[in-house]
């Protein structure tokens, strides 16, 4: 069996369905990364289930030759939770978008994370509604001019990472559609995480919100404005890696490693620390004043929900004995009529 698994290739995960995203859409890159990573995981193909909600991102299951379930708007976490509880042996991945997960499915999103169900959730964040043709989303910046907000949106956006950390997520990461090697490495880490693994992926919608992440993906921003989180290493970034992140009171600030202070003032990144406080502070960093952190914000292991559910049932069976139909029906207060 193991040799068969090892023999899986990227094309084994490509379905026969024509991919129908707009040319140039960031979703292609994400699909390609997932199709590259899945065969590396040593998991039989039939064990994968990809669950999605509604939106451009949610067409994802059709393009992967695995079991797939394209559900309804915002509800993929509900379906995935039931599936994982019924079948802990399956490898369940959710594909979702900022409208699907942050807006209509916001409730399910936070509850999935707090329960720590052993599924992976990929948030394709393009900060716009694409499938409905260009309305602002709950991650759009204030003042966004769209078809539904011709003179600018008024509501504050969600920060998906902050939200996830607040909900008690045990694995939180961010990557970018066009950073293929980075994205793949984050996906591998997500796959290895035993609880809910949440990955926000900056995804460019070249039709309705082009260059939404140019402050990360532009050539200059990549080197100057991107902070790679690496476990056990100091938080430094920029050309010649001369800028660092340090604590100032309860906040973070950028300092110059040459002009301001030495590397010893720099925070050393610890993704496994129990407290999510620093991860939260990092999730709040936004350009242009601050760099954009990418990588693993948090990776702590606690028991998964499905494991607790299974253990509880096993413990009940141990204590009471496996229930039989006879116990069930005849076990209460009964009387006989002759």
């Amino acid at each position: 069996m193991s040799t068969e698994v090892a023999a899986l290739k990227k094309k084994d995960f490509q379905s026969d369905q024509e991919v129908r995203w707009c040319p140039g859409c960031g979703d292609y890159a994400i699909l390609s990364a997932v199709q590259s990573v899945f065969p590396e995981l040593g998991i039989p193909k039939e064990k994968f289930v990809v669950v999605s909600g509604i939106g451009c991102s949610s067409r994802f299951p059709y393009y992967l030759d695995t079991f797939g379930f394209h559900t309804i708007h915002g509800r993929a976490p509900g379906v995935a939770t039931g599936l994982k509880l019924a079948r802990p042996d399956l490898e369940v991945w959710i594909a979702s978008g900022d409208g699907d997960a942050m807006s209509i499915g916001g409730n399910h999103f936070i509850h999935l994370l707090r329960r720590n169900v052993g599924v992976k959730i990929l948030l394709f964040n393009n900060r716009i509604y694409g499938l409905t043709k260009g309305q602002y989303s709950p991650t759009s910046e204030v003042g966004k001019r769209t078809k539904s907000t011709p003179v600018g949106s008024l509501d504050n956006p969600f920060n998906p990472l902050s939200l996830a950390l607040g909900a008690g997520a045990t694995f939180v990461a961010r990557s970018v559609d066009v950073f293929q090697p980075h994205l793949k490495s984050v996906l591998r880490r997500a796959a290895a995480h035993p609880g809910t693994a949440f990955v926000e992926i900056y995804q460019n919608c070249n039709i309705f919100n082009d260059k939404a992440f140019s402050n990360v993906t532009d050539k200059q921003a990549r080197t100057e404005q991107t902070l790679h989180l690496e476990h056990g290493k100091p938080l430094v970034f920029g050309k010649e890696r001369r800028r660092g992140i340090r604590l100032k009171g309860v906040d973070l600030e950028v300092f110059d490693l040459v002009d301001d202070a030495g590397i010893e003032e720099c925070l050393v990144w610890d993704e496994k620390v129990a407290s999510p406080t620093l991860a939260f502070a990092l999730s709040r960093l936004v350009p242009p004043a601050m760099p954009t952190p990418i990588g693993i914000f948090r990776a702590v292991e606690t028991e998964t929900y499905e494991s607790r559910v299974v253990s509880q049932i096993e413990a009940e069976i141990d204590t009471k004995g496996a229930g039989t139909l006879e116990d069930l029906l005849y076990g209460g207060d009964t009387w006989v009529v002759d």
Partner: peptide, 20 residues
């Protein structure tokens, strides 16, 4: 499974059913 709302409750049942 006591879900977060009625919608998640039925969705979880559907997911479980998909799983057999």
């Amino acid at each position: 499974f006591q879900a977060e709302d009625e919608i998640a409750a039925v969705c979880a049942a559907i997911g479980a059913s998909f799983g057999g």
